[in-house]
């Protein structure tokens, strides 16, 4: 086993163990922190594959954004410090079955999919310049339309937030 493989297994173990703990922990704040470590493990995998840009984006979006949001909502929730109730055995079984089915489908897909071998094909280098160009290109395989659609979605979400947060002036009778 080379050092690289060893690092991969360490990162995978971190991701899986903290993911499992995040599901089984009965303290909600700890669950959020375990989720954070799971997401960091995935970012570590991206760094391991030398996709630094994706890894950094993973950290910015999931760690800096989503986890902080989750922790904030835990802080603002009443009785967030209490232990969560133990679920019924039937529910546990169902949840385990559902996650196992999802795992099975993913693995099936992974085994059936014919991956392109990165070593013999001219795979585009994942530099930031390339990603940026690809994101705004309108040619074959360009992502300009999805990019614009997503930005419209985000704009709509922004406007929605402002409308919800806006304090309307009381209407004079």
């Amino acid at each position: 086993m080379t050092g690289s493989t060893f690092i991969f297994y360490m990162l995978a173990a971190l991701t899986l163990v903290s993911g499992f703990l995040s599901v089984t922990s009965r303290q909600i704040f700890r669950a959020a922190i375990y989720l954070l470590f799971s997401l960091l493990g995935i970012a570590g995998l991206y760094f391991w594959m030398q996709y630094e840009f994706i890894a950094a984006v993973q950290i910015v979006v999931y760690v800096g954004g989503i986890t902080v949001l989750i922790i904030f909502s835990i802080f603002l929730t009443q009785q967030a410090g209490e232990l969560l109730a133990v679920q019924k055995a039937g529910r546990k079984l169902f949840a385990a079955l559902a996650s196992f089915c999802a795992f099975g489908i993913t693995m099936l897909q992974v085994y059936q999919h014919s991956f392109i071998n990165a070593a013999d094909n001219n795979v585009m280098e994942a530099s930031v310049t390339n990603i940026g160009t690809q994101m705004l290109s309108t040619t074959q395989g360009g992502y300009a339309l999805p990019f614009e659609l997503v930005s419209i979605l985000l704009l709509a979400a922004l406007i929605g937030c402002i409308v919800i947060a806006m304090r309307l002036k009381p209407v004079n009778q």
């Binding site: 630094e52 840009f53 760690v63």
Partner: peptide
């Protein structure tokens, strides 16, 4: 991606 890395990792410190 040095600059992006710095701003990404520094967001962990809030955790």
């Amino acid at each position: 991606i040095g600059v992006l890395y710095v701003s990404a990792v520094s967001s962990i410190s809030v955790i």
